[in-house]
Amino acid sequence: MVQVKMESNLLGANELLARKNRNLFAGQGLLVVNLMSSPGSGKTTILERTIDVLGGQLKMGVIEGDLYTDQDAQRIEKKGVKVIQINTEGACHLDAGMVGNAFGQLPSGDMDLMFIENVGNLVCPAEFDLGEDFRAVVISTTEGNDKPLKYPFIFRQARVILLNKIDLLPYTDFSLDKFSDDLARLNPSAPVFMVSGRTGEGIKTWTEWLLGEVKRKKP
């Protein structure tokens, strides 16, 4: 009988490709945001609003992850922004290899800010580094304030959190106090922006913060 020592990281292949992506993005001074949430939280609507505000002053691109359709990509395309669709054919998350391939199809060296809209899922995407600069997690008031505690890992990893559908707050049992308390323990350094994709409320504060991040990344 022999023992063979392996010490092989099971996500090692992905992490290698993520590092490659990260170097590629850094070389172009491009800020890359991995946008994550559960299905229906409003990622695409927030993207549309963000493009409305920043599209005039920044060159933006979007990689859209979706199981089968290109509906979200069509919405983004209408905003006049370069978009590449990835269909995961049922897989629950994007991985670094998929993002690297999609990035190769975007015009090279011609962007300031790129969003990767991940598959709607609060579990698996958290485990896969795509080479992004940071992760932005969207949660909406209609989902309930318990989501950070139910999916602590994804909220812990977020650099920034957007609370969407703030216009619907009076019609839900969402407790802002409880939500803030939970995040203060889980991820105290992440700023939280309260927005409404539908009315546009709060979008300006979010885009101003984002613009600061883009400028910081520029060489």
Binding site: M1, V2, Q3, E7, S8, P188
Partner: peptide, 21 residues
């Protein structure tokens, strides 16, 4: 303080295997 770093707990790896030659 709220600036803590996770130094263990994210492991996911194959340590070793044993077999017959």
């Amino acid at each position: 303080a709220n600036e803590v770093e996770i130094i263990q707990g994210r492991e996911l790896y194959l340590d070793y295997y044993e077999g017959e030659e």
